[in-house]
Amino acid sequence: MQKSLHLDAYKCTGCLQCEMACSYEKEGAFNPAKSRIKVFTFHDLGRFSPYTCTQCAEAWCLHACPVEAITTNVATGAKEVNETLCVGCKVCTISCPFGTINYNTETHKVDKCDLCGGDPACAKACPTEAIVYIDAEQTGYDKMQKYAQLNLTQGE
């Protein structure tokens, strides 16, 4: 079964545990500035929204890369950056419509979410299940169930 990260902004409290977990996994330090998942605060709306790479099946970044440094991990579906091949040209950062692949000024390469090889640290760290790692074919299951229940109530 292939899994997918599923993000629910309405469950997010903006605590940044995901950013710390990600940066520790990837950089060995608690450093939100280096996290590949980002929580955005919309103060005036009173909302928080986590966002990261959705691992497109036909990934813009992968197709744009001139040196084929981005490949698909067959087991997880993640689009992974091969750091030895990456030349830091940033074409992928231009081609990604979602902005989830970014240049790292220290390594001179690009960084993106790679699903931690199939065990994403952000999902494990999230205290409110705003980030879950679930069956890629069932990410709409919760909403379906909610509306199915609504359907049931309306029938009474």
């Binding site: 409290t13 605590c15 940044l16 545990q17 710390m20 709306l45 009173g46 928080f48 205290p127 409110t128």
Partner: peptide
């Protein structure tokens, strides 16, 4: 109450956000 909110690193999230 619009939502509850967390401070940095907080897994309790007691903060109140109101409108």
């Amino acid at each position: 109450l619009t939502t509850n909110a967390a401070c940095f690193g907080c897994t309790i999230a007691c903060g109140r956000i109101s409108t």
